[in-house]
């Protein structure tokens, strides 16, 4: 049954890759929307992810201890993402970033790095350093056999959630009045203002929306991992790699970037574990060198 095991291995890699791509996409979609609209490369996005994961894990555990049904976990995940996104997004945008829009892009990156450090420690203070395990939603859904391999159903639903996010973003941008306004602001801020769009409000809502996606990525992945310090540190550089590869500010780019990086990493994990991290950042570096605007963003002329 050599042939069978090859197929099984390939299927495993494919599904692992898709799952990994899915969570990368959810997080990166938030990052890229914020960049596209506000031209902010938000390092603190890693913290939204970590906060989402911690908040979800904490309450899933609490509710389970209280004897509430495990199915509540899914509600908690969504609620955690929204609460984290709205609260942190609002405070950060209104409290800090609002005052920086006229400043240098690089300086704003630095400010979000400062925020990242602050938020990382508030997590430790709020949740402590011991890891959280919120396996209940995953246990609830059980496992399924497909093509000779056994997979957690929960992990597979992650792919569905990512697809929903992708379709949702597409629908919002292309089929709603809001999307038209947003695209005007993305195209040119001044044009947006001239059209009478309330740009500050668009910024606030965009930032909150992006933050919710960051939180959702963390909240949804929480049941599958041990939620421990340092979560945000890893995910933020991975998301950077995704948006750089796909093209910063593009949702489609984030999707394709996630797929490339997710599947490459899955192949590496199974076939050549030594290059697991290397391959992600090597792809990022190569894309930056040969196509700095990303693979799927239209190439723009360089300043000089």
């Amino acid at each position: 049954m050599v042939g069978g095991s090859v197929v099984e291995a390939a299927l495993t890699i494919l599904l692992d890759g898709l799952q990994f791509s899915s969570y990368l996409f959810i997080v990166s979609a938030g990052l890229t929307i914020i960049f596209g609209v506000m031209k902010i490369l938000n390092v603190a996005h890693g913290s939204f992810y970590a906060w989402g994961a911690y908040t979800a894990a904490f309450f899933i555990g609490k509710f389970s201890d209280m004897g509430l049904p495990d199915a509540m976990g899914f509600l908690i995940i969504i609620a955690a993402a929204i609460i984290v996104g709205v609260i942190l997004g609002f405070i950060i945008e209104q409290g800090i970033l609002k005052y920086m829009y006229h400043r240098d892009e690089v300086l704003i990156v630095l400010a979000t790095f400062g925020l990242f450090l602050v938020l990382e420690d508030i997590i430790l203070i709020a949740f402590g350093t011991d890891p959280y395990f919120a396996y209940q939603p995953m246990a609830l859904l059980d496992a399924v056999e497909m093509g000779g391999i056994v997979r957690d159903v929960y992990g597979l639903t992650l792919i569905g959630v990512a697809a929903l996010v992708a379709v949702g973003c597409w629908w919002l941008l292309n089929k709603t009045k809001w999307g038209t306004l947003l695209k005007a602001v993305i195209f040119d801020r001044e044009v947006g203002i001239a059209m009478g769009i309330n740009v500050p409000l668009v910024y606030t809502l965009t930032f909150i929306g992006g933050a919710i996606l960051g939180g959702l990525g963390g909240a949804y992945i929480a049941p599958t991992i041990s939620v421990a310090p340092g979560l945000g540190t890893e995910v933020i550089v991975l998301s950077f790699a995704v948006v750089v590869v796909g093209g910063m500010g593009s949702i489609a780019g984030a999707a394709i970037g996630s797929l490339i990086i997710g599947i490459l990493r899955a192949i590496a994990v199974h076939e050549l574990p030594q290059v697991e991290l290397f391959v992600v950042f090597a792809v990022m570096a190569v894309v930056l060198v040969f196509r700095p605007e990303g693979l799927f963003a239209p190439a723009k002329p360089r300043k000089i």
Binding site: E105, E276, V289, P292
Partner: peptide
Amino acid sequence: FIMRNYRDIFFAMLNTAISMVLFGIVVKT
């Protein structure tokens, strides 16, 4: 030779990418 053509966040990011390549190699070797 590559970096001298980059500015702003692209400069910042390409440096990040290169450093993380080394990090990825060292951590797994």
